[in-house]
Design a protein around this nucleic acid. Structure first.
Lengths: 199, 199
DNA sequence: TTGTGAAAACTAATTCGATTAGTTAAAATT
DNA sequence: AATTTTAACTAATCGAATTAGTTTTCACAA
């Protein structure tokens, strides 16, 4: 007989991702995961330190995949078009990997180097897109926060089934992104003009 | 000797709220709650059906309190000022009752009448505030979704310590709310050209 | 080919939190 | 004062995560 089963961290993460995305992150348990992998629960401990660490790894995967989606969307685009594209990519990531995304917002290990680096990549990508507007540095950061807040809020609420009204959700999304884009235009104060805002 | 302890659903909810707000919703357990109430865990089952029901009750409290905060903020205000006020109230609620708010987004029982009614109240309140802009009906709903998304996103990210850059968070918030308000103004299409405007 | 060591599976046992069953004490009501 | 009800309690069960300790398989060197 060959070895009962051939496990591997990446196989484990893949199956865990499937469970989290399909059944919800809270349904992900060592027991269920072991069952799907046709292995006894303790076997998983040869590859990871426990459920919590597993979720943290998923969190990292989630942010990396988010960056991947957004990067792909941003390639070859700039300005308003780029903002629309990365926003759609964000929403798409959350729709396609709700469990992974959930992990990335609920189990981020603030001390993890890899996670921080992935998060930083996302922020940098958005800042780069905003570069086209020549905003003041601080303003650009405020806008990144705004876009991120909106995207996280919108997709989270959609995931929890929170939009009750019978009105097309995708339409809301694109209208609101456009609204935000107008806001950026309004906030545009060229660096070259170098205005000082003190308060 | 008098009865060992005097329990009561409202006392239980109050203590549970304290724990959830101070230590995080995930730290709330029957065991810890019983300990804080100086009672044995099983005693709590005389007053509620379990941990899950408890969290659902907290969710309801959370939405009710959110409405309460926003309503108080909206009184006597209208237009842009009202939007700023209810937005600040939202953020304040999340800051003062992170656990309660968390419960309301993570454990809403979609079938609960009381919860639905409380949520509906919040939506109605915001719609009422937006009335001042005489938006098209659909547009108004899109804007409610936008404001809600932003507020939920911003406060959630703040709670998880997600704003890493060293830039004042309150300033971001007020700038972004103003940006959103400009967006509403831009979206303003009068339902009825004969209606009087506020600004 | 065979023996050995490491990796990674396994079984068995522990722990901890939630929950249920069944008992008893206090309070309220007649 | 007796009885009924409420709400505490103890004891027991259950399920999930984890740890301990054992055994199987595989890679590789003699």
């Amino acid at each position: 007989m060959s070895r009962r089963i051939k496990l591997d961290l990446s196989i484990i993460l893949q199956k865990a991702t499937e469970i989290a995305d399909e059944q919800g992150l809270d349904q992900l348990s060592i027991g269920l995961l072991a069952e799907k992998l046709e292995v006894r629960p303790p076997s998983l401990y040869n590859h990871l330190d426990g459920l919590n660490e597993l979720k943290q790894k998923l969190a990292i995967q989630g942010v990396k995949k988010l960056h991947e989606y957004m990067l792909r969307a941003a390639v070859g685009r700039s300005g308003d078009e780029a903002i629309r594209a990365i926003s759609q990519a964000y929403l798409q990531l959350v729709r396609q990997h709700p469990g992974l995304y959930d992990a990335s917002t609920r189990f981020p290990d603030a001390n993890d180097q890899e996670l921080q680096q992935a998060q930083e990549s996302v922020v940098q990508l958005v800042l780069q897109v905003l570069d086209a507007y020549h905003l003041q540095e601080e303003t650009a950061i405020h806008m990144v926060r705004g876009l991120r807040s909106f995207l996280h809020g919108f997709s989270s609420i959609e995931q929890m089934g929170g939009f009750g009204m019978p009105l097309d959700i995708n339409k809301s999304f694109s209208i609101l992104i456009n609204t935000f884009i107008e806001g950026i235009h309004a906030a545009t104060i060229h660096k070259d003009q170098n205005m000082e805002m003190n308060d």
